[in-house]
Amino acid sequence: MELNAISIGFVVFTIFTLGGAIGVVTTRNLFQGTIWLMVSLFGVAGYFILLSAPFLAAVQILVYIGAIAILITFAVMLTRSIARIKERYIRLLPSFIGSLALFLILLLGVTVPIFGAHAPDSIPDYVASTRDLGAALVDENGYVVPFLLASVLLTAAMIGAIFIARDETA
């Protein structure tokens, strides 16, 4: 890998992503764990910038750090004994098998053309803009069906959450 701004950025953001992830699973403190999670998510936002997708980077920060991680912190603050967790997760074998299986599936998906052809494309000169992204989401030749399905799923989840949280007497 030649040394230029992009490769330096890649190394920095990888340190953020992996370092944050290691921090999440090793810290004994739940609140610090959520902060490490934010560091990791921030690194992923950096990857999106390197991939010329600034919109996704901003959404990553806005949704994952600004909303989801903040809500996790809120939930953590409501739990008892945030600071020194004594219980250890001891079922190491199932988690080892699970993560290994996941890693292998990812590795196969990237290298072996099971899910469609994965011939390494040459990098296109044309960089898609946010406008293209928006158009692709509502274009019938683009991603309108997955987009609508995801919308329906999210709406259903929201209605479900409201239904569960609703006070019976009200």
Partner: peptide, 9 residues
């Protein structure tokens, strides 16, 4: 909006 969310954090 994204940067402002760091203030909350």
């Amino acid at each position: 909006v994204a940067v402002a969310s760091f203030g909350t954090l």
